[in-house]
Write a protein that binds this DNA or RNA. Structure first.
Length: 441
RNA sequence: GUGGGCGUAGCGUAGUGGUUAACGCGUCAGGUUGUGGCCCUGAAGAUCGAGGGUUCAAAUCCCUCCGUCCACCCCA
């Protein structure tokens, strides 16, 4: 309803119905990072604006037109984090993490902020799972990250994904390539789209992944960087491919894969759902960024990492009709009627919860019928009924809501919790299995 | 940032100039004295996204704004 307050453009509330997806993702992150030995780091939601101007690159769209930048009351120029990598690199430098065994393997999940035109899967506030391995130049580290990235989606049950892998060489050799690319396109300039004519000067690599049919036609004859990698980058790339093959991670080499961030070199990858025509379909991407830490004022430190968006993952989970179990129904629903019964109901509720049983207590003043309807709808296994008659006898009626005939037995009020705990968790005893219950599946 | 589609109760929809805006789901109450599911009855709930305009008359036509979706751009 407009006229009332609503979420700001490009933001969303996450209601109970979607929470199971979020929980599943967070659980999968916990598991996959444990398996690969990545440690959690949390950085602030805002940083010095200059961190991203230098790190992300002040010619990128992210910095040029998508940052939430503001001056605080003390005159500091700050930006809400548009991406995690520069922040994590900043933390690495700030805390001297180069003195720990290298590479330092870090992950985070955090809200990111970019002022862009919202679309499905493109929000102004969104959430990323981000992994970085800082301090190693090894191809194996790239492959490890890619494997982690891939297994993460596998663990979520996602199928029909494609891993696109490429290399964009190191900075110096890439200059030569870009010259050749410009030389190829210059005579064709007039036939390019207006956007691509701008790209030609500013960021020629982007000519290669234009979505426009005209551009795509022209690029057929363009030189590809992957066929003329420097010797070192070629060896590195071969190392990544070998390791992925050894790990059993399927990939396709995409000679046209380029990434939008300035700091990438050598290995780049993205993972996309196959058969999803939507533009915002890339659910995760990463690459090596050997120059970034030096750019931020540190010693030259090789590093690699990736990010993947929760919201896009959830969209894809839904598209693939992967359902997630919501929170379990309560064990017990206590219904009550009459003046004194409310107190007894509250007491019974406390006892039941102390015994580890999830318990709802019905609303005072509502008819027994209404409360029992609610009890039935809640999915509870057992209803505890305390009316005036039971109260007078010091008992409660226990009704099995799963049984069609609605069988009931009567129990003294003081024994209600123990009786139900015994019925629902025969082996677990009074603690209802809370101690040694296996982790939720 | 550019171009376009859409916007009716919590959700999903009907209604395209003319009496009190309809239906399904959901919510609440009831179907005799205190007992759920199915079923039945009733009620609440909509300034028809907002503001302005045209008209005797606007949910319906026009303008602006907001939101959303699609394509571009960009990217998670």
């Amino acid at each position: 309803m407009s006229g009332r307050f609503q979420t700001p453009r490009g933001t969303e509330d996450i209601l109970a119905g979607e929470q199971p997806y979020w929980r599943m993702i967070e659980e999968a992150i916990g598991e996959i990072t444990r398996l690969f030995g990545y440690e959690r780091i949390d950085t602030p939601s805002f940083e010095a604006a200059a961190l991203f101007e230098k790190g992300t690159g002040d010619t990128t769209d992210i910095v040029e037109k998508e940052m939430y930048t503001f001056e605080d009351r003390g005159g500091e120029i700050l930006s809400l984090t548009p991406e995690a990598t520069p922040a994590i690199c900043r933390a690495y430098l700030q805390h001297g993490l180069s003195n720990r065994p290298q590479p330092v393997r870090l992950f985070t999940t955090a809200r990111m902020f970019r002022y862009s035109r919202p679309q499905l899967g493109r929000l102004r506030q969104f959430t990323q799972f981000d992994c970085e391995a800082i301090g190693s130049p090894a191809a194996l580290v790239d492959a490890e990250l890619i494997e982690l990235h891939w297994r993460f989606y596998e663990r979520l049950g996602l199928r029909n994904l494609e891993l696109r892998l490429g290399s964009i060489d190191d900075l110096e050799p890439r200059r030569d390539y870009l010259d050749r690319l410009r030389a190829y396109y210059r005579p064709l300039r007039e036939r390019l789209t207006a956007d691509s004519q701008r790209r030609l000067e500013r960021n020629p690599l982007r000519l290669l992944d234009s979505n426009d049919a005209r551009d795509q036609e022209l690029r057929a004859g363009a030189p590809t960087i992957i066929d003329q990698l420097s010797e070192e980058a070629a060896r590195h790339f071969a190392g990544v491919r070998d390791a992925l093959t050894a790990a059993g991670v399927p990939f396709t080499v995409d000679p046209l894969l380029v990434r939008g961030l300035d700091y990438y070199n050598r290995t780049v990858w993205e993972i996309v759902p196959v058969g999803d025509s939507r533009a915002q379909s890339s659910i995760g991407a990463g690459g090596r960024y050997d120059g970034l830490l030096e750019t931020l004022g540190g010693r030259a430190t090789p590093a690699s990492g990736f990010a993947t968006g929760h919201e896009r993952i959830i969209l894809e989970l839904m598209r693939q009709e992967i359902t997630v179990a919501g929170p379990p129904a309560p064990d017990v629903f206590v219904v009550h009627a009459g003046k004194g019964a409310s107190r007894a109901a509250v007491r019974a509720g406390a006892d039941l919860r102390a015994a580890g049983l999830a318990t709802f207590v019905g609303e005072a003043g509502r008819s027994l019928r209404a409360q029992l309807r609610r009890a039935n709808g809640s999915g509870a296994r057992i209803a505890v009924i305390i009316g005036e008659d039971e109260l007078a006898r010091g008992t409660a009626a226990l009704k099995d809501l799963r049984a069609e005939d609605g069988e009931q037995e009567e129990a003294p009020l003081g024994e209600v919790a123990a009786r139900i705990a015994g019925r629902l968790r025969p082996r677990a005893g009074g603690r209802a299995g809370a101690e040694d219950a296996p982790a939720a599946q």
